[in-house]
């Protein structure tokens, strides 16, 4: 069904394009979702000194690899945005696919990491630390999956030169996912 955008979508009294504005509000709500979970985690982590022994079993190498992967995928997302700004939809789509490849790599590393940990006996119910570990990283992984699906749609459109402004919005979302991981990494892997 052909869909014509209403005039409302084309107005911009704030000076920020509506799509980007909505994305910022979405991120504000995401901040409080992750914030609620991470604040709960931090409180428990400080209140439970015995979790240090549990946290020692997390795999810093896997976490570091994943950080590199996510930072690099952020780079390709911003390069996609740069290409879209230049009006080069094909190049933007290529960079978006690279970003999605980064997301896939992230998930593969994560699944190997988790398989190993579960095999070692560090399951969800082992202690509060592991519950939070799987809960927070899992919620983040869900965002990685959602973001890559969204970027897939944007990339298909961008390759045809349509809706290039969405490349930026998808990128902003992706950088947010990256920022969440930037905080999850020290919280779960480094502070032991």
């Amino acid at each position: 069904m052909a869909f014509a955008k209403p005039i409302a979508t084309l107005r911009s009294a704030t000076g920020v394009p509506v799509g980007r504005l909505a994305m910022w509000w979405l991120l504000a709500s995401e901040i409080v979702i992750f914030g609620g979970l991470l604040m709960s985690y931090i409180m428990h982590r400080i209140g439970h000194p015995e979790w240090a022994a549990e946290a020692a079993h997390t795999n810093t190498v896997a976490g570091a690899i994943n950080t590199v992967v996510l930072l690099s995928s952020s780079l390709s997302a911003v390069l996609a945005h740069q290409a879209a700004q230049m009006g080069n939809g094909k190049r933007a789509a290529r960079f978006l696919w690279i970003t999605i490849g980064g997301a896939a790599t992230f998930l593969v590393v994560k699944s190997f990491e988790w398989t190993h940990e579960i095999h070692e006996g560090f399951v969800l119910t082992r202690s509060g630390f592991w519950s939070f570990y799987y809960c927070a990283a899992g919620l983040h992984a869900l965002h990685v999956i959602a973001g890559s699906i969204a970027m897939g749609f944007v990339a298909v459109d961008a390759a045809k030169g349509r809706e290039l402004q969405r490349v930026e919005y998808a990128g902003i979302y992706w950088h947010f996912v990256d920022v969440v991981w930037i905080f999850l990494f020290p919280l779960l892997y480094i502070a032991k």
């Binding site: 704030t14 000076g15 920020v16 504005l21 910022w24 509000w25 991120l27 504000a28 709500s29 901040i31 409080v32 914030g35 609620g36 604040m39």
Partner: peptide, 15 residues
């Protein structure tokens, strides 16, 4: 725009 930064900061402050 500045107001975007403000409301993102407010979300952080709420946390």
């Amino acid at each position: 725009k500045k107001f975007v930064i403000y409301f993102l900061t407010i979300a952080l402050c709420l946390m």
